[in-house]
Design a protein around this nucleic acid. Structure first.
Length: 283
DNA sequence: TGGATATTTCCTGCTT
DNA sequence: CAAGCAGGAAATATCC
């Protein structure tokens, strides 16, 4: 089943404006009905909006329809997108839980995907009704709003009795899972240089031999590929002029604050007393 | 809106 | 000589 199968001409349903879209775009149509193109755009939207590291995502794994996407397990997400897979999985589950006005959806006669013939007309009406009647909500630009979204706070405020999440007895548990996941995501997207370095050391799948522990217990590590490290940090900060020269200056500032300690060897650094989260037994 | 904080950028001099 | 290291100084970005 394709979008064209469902809607005939694509002009009836323009592409999601993922650059400016807010969550309401992605909840206006159940993900099960997304086309490959929408899956692709949703992925791009998530990368942009939630600052996911695209380097860990195997995009070819997502050349699939929304129906296929929805049938993927969390493990399959992780396989396809590494650590980002977890977040994508939870974001998708959240989108599925938040699909706008499911009652309208059922009233409009939406059936399970597969009943293309029967839903062809009604889903078109449904999406247009949604689009015309639902003013754009503000985009999720702020962390708290994202948290609200992920933890379902917004749903709590305005949910209807037919909201799938409300029917789900595991709602609270799910929210906690999502919260935990978000914390991990925050960690992954650490904004400080030393946290970025620490997290790179702790995630072999992203590290690619750029950093290496020299003495794990003492927190001594070595920069193996200085240029690659600078490039990666530059990508994170959206700064293509980053160099190891400049990055190392920033690292040297950490000596003052006790985040790092000086090691008198080239390209070798040590976590200081004010750095946390790098010790194996305290993770 | 202004201050604090964390880099980023540039630089000079020194070391490996 | 190239690549790093040490810090000072100033600019810039971001957060609260």
């Amino acid at each position: 089943m394709s979008w064209t199968d469902l809607f005939g001409n694509e002009e009836y349903y323009p592409a999601f404006e993922h650059q400016t879209a807010c969550d309401s775009y992605w909840t206006s149509v159940p993900p099960e009905y997304w086309t490959k193109r929408h899956v692709w755009e949703w992925l791009q939207f998530c990368c942009d909006q939630y600052k996911l590291d695209t380097s860990c995502i195997s995009f070819c794994h997502f050349n699939i329809s929304g129906l296929q996407l929805c049938s993927m397990t969390q493990e399959e997400f992780v396989e396809a997108a590494g650590v980002c897979g977890e977040y994508l999985y939870f974001i998708l589950q959240n989108v599925r839980a938040q699909v706008h006005c499911p009652s309208d959806c059922w009233r409009a006669g939406l059936r399970a995907p597969g009943d293309a013939e029967e839903t062809k007309a009604t889903i078109k009406d449904f999406t247009w009704k949604e689009r015309n009647s639902q003013p754009k909500e503000p985009c999720f630009l702020k962390t708290e709003t994202l948290m609200d979204s992920l933890t379902g706070a917004r749903l709590e405020k305005g949910r209807t009795s037919s909201a799938p999440v409300a029917q789900n007895g595991n709602y609270k548990k799910q929210s906690e899972e999502v919260k935990k996941c978000f914390t991990r995501k925050q960690r992954l997207q650490s904004s400080h240089l030393w946290e970025f370095v620490r997290d790179l050391l702790l995630s072999p799948e992203e590290n690619c031999g750029i950093l290496e522990w020299e003495d794990r217990e003492q927190g001594i590590f070595r920069v193996v590929k200085s240029e690659a490290l600078a490039k990666m940090w530059g990508q994170r900060k959206k700064n293509d002029r980053m160099t190891y020269e400049k990055l190392s200056r920033a690292l040297r500032y950490y000596y003052k604050t006790g985040i790092l300690e000086r090691v008198d060897r080239r390209l070798v650094y040590k976590f200081g007393k004010n750095a946390h989260g790098w010790q194996e037994d305290k993770l």
